[in-house]
Design a binder for these strands. Structure first.
Length: 477
RNA sequence: GGUCCCAUCGUCUAGAGGCCCAGGACACCACCCUCUCAAGGUGGAGACACGGGUUCAAAUCCCGUUGGGACUACCA
């Protein structure tokens, strides 16, 4: 282990949106860099032109920024090891491929996709391993010349050295051992001249000076291949740490089909970035005791790769929601008000900051997500208070006279304060021989249109006397 | 099928041989608080996959079984 500052990277393919699995990988890399005074690099693996889009690139950057995972080198910030988009680095991969060919570690494969597919199918049918059979590696000079004369397109394959096995020590999985029989000759350059992941990602990790590669466990099988490639290139390899996967409720690798998995979705649905970061950090890592609410700074201080668990974790949105509520309650009224303003306007409601600031302490402990604000506060910012079913029932229970009396009594409250309103509501309830619970509920129903709301007197002070009286009379019919 | 990874409450986990007839958190249930709903408080139910070893002693070490997952592309 060297003690030079570590260099780590997050290397996503911008196709679609950043989902929580990717975000967690980015987070662990970021935490490792921040914890150890290292450098966090963002590298864009956009070699697959068919799947990569500009929109996905924008979403990726926005998601990362929102999460607060800032990169020291990469798109937008530059750096000395750039460029950081693989489509701008094809010459680098070509050079590396050239070295491999010259050293006899890579060869041209003339098999067509159709032939490959057919042989794969046959192998499977015969219960044999479906990987590449190495046919073009054994071509005679004549056969090769014939293919060339024919103008057959070719791809470049890496030649797995025979009789070799690969050993390496994974920082989270421990000692690993792979026999060469399990490793098939893999394509490093496609017939269109573009590099594949195995080549591009591996070469970049070398050229960009990565000391540690922290990535998902789904890439564990590609590590021995890349290690063999580095050996052929004559260059030292970085250290590897493979993170256990994040699974859906069905225990399969988390993906879009599991529903809410995109970071953008959480941003749009009233989740706080700090809460998501905190939750994700706990998915596959634990500080070693029972602490769970760990602010970013503490995460950085306590993060330790060797404490990463080896088994996969199921993403539990319920627990995330709980944690989000915890973070919401820790926010200042000002911050909560600002957050609610946004979600309210997205719901088409025009609110003002002063009112929101005043109601914030009463609603933040009843919310788990900021986007619950519209449902909770609609009555304050909309004249439309059509009573829902339960509200109708609550009103019917006491009858119109009760509401008229309440309106009359409330109309005389002065000054319009929480204390004054409370006294008035209590009086009205007492006059009908009702306790607060039974006496206030019809008022809540008439004024808010629902049977659930922030504390009533506090809500009414903000609604205003005239509007309160008007709604009581309206409900009385 | 092959290769590899993994295995503590429903879920996330603590546990690195005796401190564990297994602790915390989410969710769930009950009670308390209470103007509704929450939040908060108290209590409850709930797990070491199974079988063999090793050891005075195993959730912890070894082997096997079972179960789950990943990979097996000219995707990353």
């Amino acid at each position: 282990m060297s003690d030079a500052p570590p260099r780590v990277r997050f290397a996503p393919a911008p196709s679609g949106s950043l989902h929580v699995g990717g975000a967690r990988t980015a987070l662990f890399n970021w935490l490792y860099a921040r914890r150890n005074g290292g450098t966090f690099v963002l590298r864009v693996e956009d070699t697959d032109a068919d799947r990569v889009t500009d929109e996905a690139m924008r979403v990726l950057e926005r998601s990362l920024h929102w999460l607060g995972l800032d990169w020291d080198e990469g798109p937008g910030v530059g750096g000395s090891r750039g460029p950081y988009r693989q489509t701008e680095r094809f010459d680098v991969y070509r050079d590396a491929a050239g070295v491999l060919v010259e050293g006899g570690h890579a060869y041209r494969c003339y098999c067509t996709p159709e032939e490959l597919e057919e042989r794969r199918r046959q192998a499977k049918a015969a219960d044999r391993a479906p990987g590449y059979d190495g046919r073009c590696r054994r071509l005679t000079d004549e056969e090769r010349a014939a293919f060339e004369a024919e103008g057959r397109p070719w791809a470049l394959r890496f030649a797995i050295p025979e009789g070799r096995s690969v050993e390496f020590d994974d920082l989270v999985k421990g000692p690993q051992h792979f026999d060469y029989e399990a490793l098939r000759d893999f394509v490093i350059v496609r017939s269109d001249g573009s590099p594949t992941y195995l080549l591009a990602s591996g070469v970049d990790d070398l050229r960009m000076g990565m000391t540690h590669v922290i990535r998902g466990e789904d890439l564990l099988p590609s590590t021995p291949r890349q290690l063999l490639m580095f050996e052929a290139l004559g260059e030292p390899a970085p250290q590897y740490a493979h993170l256990p996967l994040i699974l859906g409720p069905d225990r399969a690798k988390l993906s879009k089909r599991h529903g809410a998995v995109a970071v953008e979705w959480f941003r749009e649905h009233g989740y706080l970035p700090d809460a998501l970061v905190n939750y994700l950090a706990l998915l596959g890592w634990s500080p070693g005791n029972n602490d769970e609410i760990l602010p970013r700074a503490e995460l950085v201080e306590r993060f330790d790769l060797s404490a990463v668990s080896r088994h996969p974790a199921i993403f539990d949105i319920e627990k995330l929601a709980w944690m989000n509520g915890e973070y919401l309650r820790a926010l200042s009224d000002e911050e909560v008000a600002a957050g609610m303003l946004t979600s309210l306007s997205e719901a088409g409601l025009v609110a003002d900051l002063d009112t929101l600031r005043a109601i914030a302490p009463h609603v933040k402990e009843r919310m788990k997500r900021l986007d619950e604000a519209p449902a909770m506060l609609r009555f304050l910012f909309s004249d439309d208070v059509a009573l829902d079913e339960k509200a109708e029932a609550a009103v019917a229970k006491v009858g119109p006279d009760y509401l008229r009396r309440a309106a009359d009594r409330v109309a005389s409250v002065s000054p319009w304060t929480v204390e004054g309103i409370t006294a008035a509501l209590d009086e009205v309830a007492a006059s009908a021989d009702l306790n607060r619970s039974k006496g206030w509920q019809p008022v809540r129903a008439a004024v808010t249109g629902t049977t659930v709301s922030p504390p009533l007197p506090e809500s009414l002070t903000l609604l205003g006397r005239d509007e309160t009286v008007a709604r009581l009379r309206a409900a009385a019919g």
